[in-house]
Structure formats: structure tokens, C-alpha cells
């Protein structure tokens, strides 16, 4: 906790509250900015060299589509981490939202409603539920004054346990007719690009604008740099924090909307460890774990990088399957090294 009051001029990163036009550092080759991109390019080269099928449009679309869930969640997570917080519950939250949404849609389809209307309501419900969960986190953290780590560790258990209970330990499966109507949201494409990739791109764009071009974005960075100073600068810290968790909840809701049509089911293994993947994507993408500064573009690249690693491992058998996790670990550390901060 950066609670010691430091003078405003000492705020690291220079992202002090309310500054107009962002000051940019002198343009030089800065590995801090390009680390994740270089890492991704190297991986793409390695992948292509190992298996020519890697460099095909279909494979790239597969990888981008499956990255969409983690990627969208990571964009929300980026805001939370920049503000100096953390959310460990996103995987469980996604699983519970998926389960609750499927149950609700199945129940509604018995009523006199068209399948399209039921699916539309289900999607709205998922996003609203996510936003609600996020705000509840924010409320407990700001008003309840509980550490975000503890609040979300608690809900991590609660969300998954409730889902397991709802599913009776098995799987909750979407009604077949609804599944057919909902399917295109994951499997369909527009101009040759799958729908989830479009949503991912839009979310990234919106996230980037929100972080870098709005007062809210600057407040988030200011709070992460130094909460005390932000408070002195008349930033409504509690409200901004509440909103960052709400925003992350909405991102989880959107990711779930895309996830449900893929398998049409939710089970206690749904979204397992997504929280760690999302956090890793944010940090690999060059956001400081201590908060204060971060980038959406880096986060997006970080998320893609993580799924490209497992894609390459699946497309080759150079390395023993027992060592897959080790390769992933090495790449994460290497990329983090490429963009390490110098004192």
C-alpha cells in the first residue's frame, strides 16, 4: 500500500491526477514499450518454423477466437491492476454467470418467447450479473475496507461452490434449440473474421480510449500511483475504484456471453485458473503489478502471446508433454525480462 503521503511532484510515472494532454517520453527505442510485441513476433517465427500449418489464417483465427475470453477479461483486469487492486475471482465468476445464464435461458424457453428473444435476454442477464458482482466487490473493498485480495479470494470460492451446487456436481447444459440459435455468436463470422474476435477488438479499442483519453482513465492511473495524493487532488477514490471493479465484472459478463455458445454448457471446471491467465496477460503486457501505469495494447498482446504458446506446443511434439507448463513459464519470464523496468 503506497499510503505514505508523498509530494505530488514525486508521483511516479508523472500521471498525476487531472493532467491534460498526456506527456510523452522522448521517443527512443524503449524495450519497456515493445517487449511483448518482440516476444510475440519471435514466437510467431518459431511457430512457423516448427510447423507450416501454424501460419495459416484458420489457425490464427482459432487462436484469436479462443483468446477472446481471457483477452476481454484481461482488459478489465488491466484497469483494476492499474488502480492498485486485484481480482482473483474472475474465473469462478465467469463459471457462475455461465451456469446461471444457461439455467435462466432454459427456464425462459418454456414460456411463450421466441428463441432469439430468450438468447438476447440471456446475454443481457449475463452482462448485468457480471456488472453486479463487480460492483459488489468494489463496494466491499471501498466501503467495507477489506483488502481486494481477500474479498475476491472469498468470492472465488463462493462463486464456484454455488455453481457446483447448481450443477449438482455435473454440468449445466443449454437447451438444444437455444444452442442452435446462440451458436453463431461463437462460431459465426463477419467478413471472414469470427464474431468473438470482433468483440475482442472492440473491447480493446474501448478500453484503450477509456484509459488514455478520459478523466476516468487518468483517475484510475492516479489512484494506482498514489492513492493519498489522488485523494488530496479531490479524486473521488472510492467511486472510481467501485467503477473499475464494476467494469471488470462487465468484461467477465461479455466474455461469458461469448463462452456459453462454444460448448453450450457450464461445469465446475469452467473458467478454472482464468484469473491467473488474465493477470499474467496484464503483467506480461507491461502493466506494473504495483499499479499506476499500464497499457491496453500490451495486455492484448500478452493474452495472445499466452495462447500462442500452447497452440505451438499442441502443433508440435518436439517437447515432452510433461514439460508444456515449463515452456510456458520460460516464455513468460523471458518476455517479462525483455520489458523489465530499470531503476
Amino acid at each position: 500500500m503506497p499510503s505514505a503521503p508523498t509530494p505530488v511532484t514525486d508521483t511516479p510515472g508523472g500521471a498525476a491526477a487531472g493532467g491534460t494532454g498526456a506527456r510523452r517520453p522522448v521517443r527512443r527505442f524503449d524495450p519497456l514499450l515493445y517487449g511483448p510485441f518482440i516476444g510475440l513476433l519471435l514466437l510467431l517465427a518459431v511457430g512457423t518454423a516448427l510447423n507450416p500449418d501454424f501460419a495459416t489464417w484458420d489457425n490464427w483465427m482459432n487462436v484469436l477466437t479462443r483468446t477472446a475470453f481471457i483477452g476481454i477479461i484481461a482488459i478489465g483486469m488491466c484497469f483494476v491492476i492499474i488502480s492498485g487492486g486485484i481480482d482473483l475471482s474472475v474465473g469462478s465468476m465467469a463459471a457462475l454467470i455461465a451456469g446461471a445464464t444457461i439455467l435462466m435461458m432454459n427456464a425462459l424457453s418454456g414460456l411463450l418467447l421466441s428463441s432469439v428473444a430468450v438468447v438476447a435476454l440471456g446475454m443481457l442477464f449475463a452482462v448485468a450479473l457480471g456488472g453486479g458482482f463487480g460492483l459488489a466487490h468494489g463496494y466491499l473493498i471501498t466501503r467495507g475496507q477489506i483488502e481486494p485480495f481477500i474479498v475476491t479470494l472469498g468470492t472465488l470460492g463462493i462463486f464456484r461452490a454455488v455453481l457446483t451446487w447448481l450443477a449438482d456436481g455435473g454440468a449445466i447444459t443449454l437447451d438444444m434449440t437455444l444452442s442452435d440459435v446462440y451458436g453463431p455468436v461463437y462460431y459465426g463470422s463477419l467478413l471472414g473474421i469470427p464474431i468473438p474476435v470482433w468483440i475482442f477488438a472492440l473491447a480493446a479499442l474501448a478500453g484503450g480510449l477509456l484509459l488514455n483519453r478520459t478523466a476516468f482513465g487518468r483517475y484510475v492511473q492516479a489512484i494506482g500511483s498514489n492513492e493519498q495524493v489522488a485523494r488530496f487532488a479531490a479524486v473521488d477514490v472510492d467511486r472510481v475504484k467501485l467503477l473499475t471493479y464494476g467494469l471488470l465484472g462487465v468484461c467477465v459478463g461479455v466474455a461469458t456471453v461469448l463462452y456459453v455458445p462454444r460448448l453450450g454448457s457450464a461445469s465446475p471446471t469452467t473458467g478454472l485458473l482464468w484469473e491467473l491467465e488474465a493477470i499474467a496477460a496484464v503483467i506480461v503486457g507491461g502493466t506494473s503489478f504495483k499499479g499506476g501505469a499500464g497499457r491496453i495494447a500490451g495486455t492484448v498482446v500478452g493474452a495472445i502471446l499466452l495462447s500462442v504458446i500452447s497452440n505451438i506446443l499442441n502443433l508440435t511434439s518436439v517437447i515432452s508433454v510433461y514439460l508444456n507448463a515449463a515452456v510456458q513459464g520460460c516464455v513468460i519470464i523471458a518476455v517479462a525480462f525483455l520489458q523489465r523496468r530499470r531503476p
Binding site: D53, D58, R66, A171, R262, S267, T269, N314, L315
Partner: peptide, 14 residues
């Protein structure tokens, strides 16, 4: 289920 989906996608590519 999810991991099986991903691994199979990659097997099908390969």
C-alpha cells in the same frame, strides 16, 4: 471440456 476443445482444434490443424 474446454481444454479438449482447444487441443482438438490444434490436432485438426496439424
Amino acid at each position: 471440456r474446454d481444454d479438449a476443445f482447444k487441443v482438438t482444434q490444434d490436432f485438426l490443424t496439424r
